[in-house]
Design a protein around this nucleic acid. Structure first.
Lengths: 351, 351
DNA sequence: TTGTAAGCGTTATCAC
DNA sequence: GTGATAACGCTTACAA
């Protein structure tokens, strides 16, 4: 990586014009085999590498999209980023990764986005979970100054493009499954309720139980913070406030894991005494003790569909079809039944 | 994001030269308060955003570094990327993320790096684990055509900059701990031995046992593939080939988790009958049943130190001090003792 | 304190 | 098929 070799250098050496070198590099236009060969050889031997920055400048597009994400050290967010990267790669985009902390101010978020706009990324995937009022900065004026942007996992809303997993439906799956297993008193360890996803999962739980005519009073709800430790706390609280429960729906697998630990300590059998269902289907959940029933989210797909939608927006903007309809796409989770909630008929009969 | 507003536009409107606008934008040079205000206002109202691509072109630096990574859906790799992102952000670099699959060919790796060079990233963090011969492409000729590059977690080697966690030392910690707990027949579930890290961990296990004069024959070694499922298989194999073991060192927490599952099924008590130690300290490991003793790797730091080193390389190249010494930096893991390997004295006496 | 001119390395346009 | 010329939007020298 000494002095940069430019197109001009290649042109001078091979005795052609820079534009011809450009044509060879980009495989465009008709070129005689002779010159093409000669140019290509010069490129090889000199180790010429086209300066993509310059190309971006003149073409007005960077072939780069940015993802603004949070918490990629956790399973869910990192899966989503993987999906985003794969689809971006497929489309030929490079991926700029920007990580935010959980509690960023509005100002910080806007500065980050402004910076991405300055870097002239072609589009942005906003993959920060919705909580508190961290969507309050969204308005037409701000969006107009930004490249095309698609939001992941947030409440449906007009004027912007969104792709979300249907968390409420996922919770419904879990609780319905528990009802089908004959459970009657189903408590929940919900996530932090300042998170939209946590509220959705709680709402799904409530919806099914309300319809079935079961209680959903406060004593069968314990709020955690997604961590296993908070799951322990919540489980202890539930055993106190509602000792006669026969099932727990935890809003994520970590909290379910914490709950399992408490149940072991107390000698409460899972699933015979209390069934447990989680949410997320983290890989380890199949090896928890006992293997955890859970709700699988299509996280890879969430990322992919997000980029697909973004790519459409980018294409639309380019063609000046100022009219791409903004919409929300919902992705469906599915139920994974394992031993923490399932008693097979053989055993059931003998109980 | 309609037509791009340029410096010229701002200049024309405020009646100053483009260069003055540039000075305002970059806070450089002395400018009268009057013009600065005027320019700034114009920038605000027009929503001007400087084109960083153009700046990169003229300055010959992109203020971007790239990370080439693998498996960020797993805890370890994602932590490393987080560390990289943080340090990059601190230095003012943007981060380009490129993900590779496990089994990429040499050619694919080289193409990827070539592309990053074309994008004129200022440096590259190569965070692909070393396995098989996926380092065989490294040679001076290739490196010379690449921006500064630092390698993470690979065998020490002259001519390149490396930052690694000392996996062998980590394994030694684990096995030493088990010996101190009075264990005498310590088996291991090692990782796939085509991985450098797996070989290191196995070597650490062997080293300590050899020194202590204990057996390390094949029947106390079972190879897994890092997955919990392979941990199950390996544990079953060990119980068959060496039924009298009193401890297992698993080369990662997932495999330890699988092993725990098998031990439960067989009614073998952990840690009374068999102690188990893992490696990685994934967050969930504190909530396994029983809580897992493990070796904590400084993964965030690995990423950070990598970027620090890279930043030095970048600075060195710029100053044409062609002489930054290439070196390997080793980071030390630490032992985390939990209940899967620890019997406190009270209980010990009563056994 | 501010302006002018040149150039960064490409590609687009239009000509030959 | 190939080339000349003018951008792209900014910064660096150097002037004023």
């Amino acid at each position: 990586m000494r002095k940069q070799i430019t197109m001009r250098d290649i042109a001078r050496i091979t005795g052609v014009s820079p534009k011809t070198v450009s044509r060879v590099v980009n495989n465009q236009g008709e070129i005689s085999e002779v010159t093409r060969k000669r140019v290509q050889e010069a490129i090889e031997t000199l180790g010429y590498s086209p300066n993509i920055t310059a190309r971006s400048l003149v073409q007005g597009r960077s072939n780069t999209i940015a993802v603004v994400a949070w918490g990629i050290e956790y399973y869910g967010p990192s899966r989503v980023v993987v999906g985003i990267e794969r689809q971006a790669d497929e489309y030929g985009y490079s991926l700029l990764l920007t990580l935010l902390r959980a509690k960023e101010t509005d100002q910080k978020i806007r500065d980050t986005l402004k910076d991405l706009a300055a870097r002239r990324v072609d589009g942005i995937v906003f993959a920060i979970p919705e909580f508190n009022d961290n969507r309050s900065w969204i308005n037409e004026e701000v969006l107009n100054r930004l490249p095309p942007i698609v939001f992941l996992n947030m409440e449906s809303r007009s004027g912007i493009n969104i792709v979300s997993v249907d968390n409420k439906a996922g919770a419904r799956l879990a609780v319905t499954h528990l009802l089908e297993q004959g459970r009657k008193k189903i408590a929940t360890i919900c996530g932090p309720l300042r998170w939209w996803e946590a509220r959705q999962r709680l709402a799904g739980w409530k919806e099914v139980l309300d319809q079935a005519g079961f209680f959903t009073s406060g004593d069968v709800i314990a709020e955690g913070d997604w961590s296993a430790e908070s799951g322990e706390r919540a489980m202890r609280q539930l055993l106190e406030s509602a000792p006669n429960i026969d099932a727990v729906f935890a809003a994520n697998d970590q909290m379910a894991l914490g709950a399992l630990g408490v149940l072991h300590q107390r000698g409460i059998d899972v699933p015979d005494d209390i069934a447990v269902v989680g949410f997320d289907n983290v890989p380890d959940s199949a090896y928890f003790y006992p293997p955890l029933s859970t709700v699988d989210q299509p996280l890879l797909e969430l990322g992919k569909v997000g980029v697909q939608k973004l790519n459409q927006m980018i294409a639309t903007v380019r063609h000046d079809d100022d009219g791409m309809e903004k919409s929300t796409t919902l992705l469906m989770p599915k139920m994974i039944v394992r031993q923490s909630s399932y008693i097979d008929n053989l055993k059931k009969n003998s109980l």
